[in-house]
């Protein structure tokens, strides 16, 4: 029994870690928790590979002198594979997190169920004031000539409207290329344009005036 455990315990523990990671990915409602579960899962796979490279009586694959007997060193191939996999895993996490930030800007939440309902159009898209305001540089870099388009875009930021509206506002934001750049004088175009593109499901909750007030309140260096 002890011998069996000694020979097999790696598989046991790796399986437990895999199960935990899978549970996080599948069962957690919060998207950040899902990414954490993904990281746990992939690290468990790294451990599985690295433990598989182990050899009795072998050491790190750095050749000492000219002793090139392969039985002296552990298998370097899994090391290489996992080395690159770790780096790629971080790239995956980076992309996942940026998508999360984007989702949060559009929906104001990271609850998967709420976002899914909203995209499917089963929930009233009108939501309380967005926890996110367009930064002041958005207005500073404003372009007066693009009032309508950028207005539509910040409408997509402020609210996710209708069944097609969520896609709508988002799509216009992407194709617009200039996000939330409504300048002071195009504030009128704000609500109007978002109503038009969003299928008429509720207006942008705060115009550019409201954004500005919030930014003033935060002020510079408002690090908590």
């Amino acid at each position: 029994m002890i011998e069996l455990f000694l020979a097999r315990y790696v598989y046991l523990f790796v399986l437990m870690l895999l199960a935990i990671g899978l549970y996080g990915v599948l069962a957690k409602g919060d998207l950040v928790k899902k990414v954490i579960g993904l990281t746990i899962f992939s690290t468990a796979i790294y451990i599985f590979f690295i433990e598989g490279s182990l050899q009795e009586g072998a050491t790190a694959p750095v050749i000492e002198g000219d002793q090139t007997d392969p039985s002296l060193y552990v298998d370097p191939l899994p090391h290489l594979l996992i080395l690159t996999a770790i780096v790629v895993g971080v790239g995956v996490v980076g992309v996942a997190l940026s998508l999360l930030v984007r989702l949060y800007r559009a929906h104001g939440t990271l609850d998967e169920a709420v976002i899914a309902r909203r995209i499917a159009g089963r929930e009233d898209p009108a939501r309380p004031a967005s926890p996110h305001d367009d930064g002041p540089e958005g207005e500073q870099r404003g372009r007066g000539s693009d009032g309508g388009r950028s207005g539509a875009d910040s409408g997509g930021h402020e609210e996710a409207s209708g069944d097609s509206g969520a896609g709508h506002g988002q799509a216009s934001g992407d194709s617009g290329g200039g996000h939330g750049q409504a300048s002071g004088d195009s504030g009128g175009g704000h609500g109007q344009a978002s109503g038009g593109s969003g299928g008429g499901h509720g207006q942008a909750s705060g115009g550019s005036d409201g954004d500005r007030d919030d930014d003033d309140r935060d002020g510079p260096g408002g690090r908590a």
């Binding site: 780096v87 940026s98 930030v101 800007r105 926890p131 996110h132 367009d134 930064g135 540089e137 919030d214």
Partner: peptide
């Protein structure tokens, strides 16, 4: 390449627009 990619991901995630 790895240095540039890591720095870029960090910069993008901390763009000031995010933290109102």
């Amino acid at each position: 390449a790895v240095f540039g990619a890591m720095l870029m991901i960090f910069d993008v995630l901390t763009l000031r627009d995010d933290d109102a």
